[in-house]
């Protein structure tokens, strides 16, 4: 039997790893560099679970009171 996964928890929003291409588009859209994104540490349980490495970018889809679904992006950093 598989161990408990944080991804299945109700309170944990959906995290999706972006491809290099998607990252490029994202950075172009907001005219920013990776460093301007909010951060997430590699030690974060979700990062461990989906095996995200420093330098990756995650798309986070959260439930929102005002907008239904809200998109956010986080840069994975060492830690």
């Amino acid at each position: 039997m598989k161990e408990f996964s944080v991804l299945n928890h109700d309170m944990v929003p959906e995290h999706i790893l972006l491809t290099e291409d998607e990252i490029k588009k994202l950075l172009a859209k907001y005219r920013i560099s990776k460093g301007h994104l909010p951060k997430i540490k590699t030690s974060d349980p979700v990062c461990k679970e989906i095996n995200a490495k420093a330098g990756d970018v995650l798309k986070v889809v959260r439930d929102s009171m005002t907008a239904g679904k809200a998109l956010s992006y986080r840069l994975v950093i060492e830690g």
């Binding site: 907001y30 920013i32 301007h36 005002t66 907008a67 809200a70 998109l71």
Partner: peptide, 30 residues
């Protein structure tokens, strides 16, 4: 102007202000 909330260094705090980009004082009860 792109709707993002940023601090002084340009770091993004929210990608869309309040998730829906609505100014509550110009809204109809939110």
């Amino acid at each position: 102007y792109d709707g993002t909330v940023r601090e002084t260094r340009g770091q993004i705090v929210q990608f869309v202000y309040g998730d829906d980009g609505v100014d509550p004082s110009k809204s109809d009860y939110g």
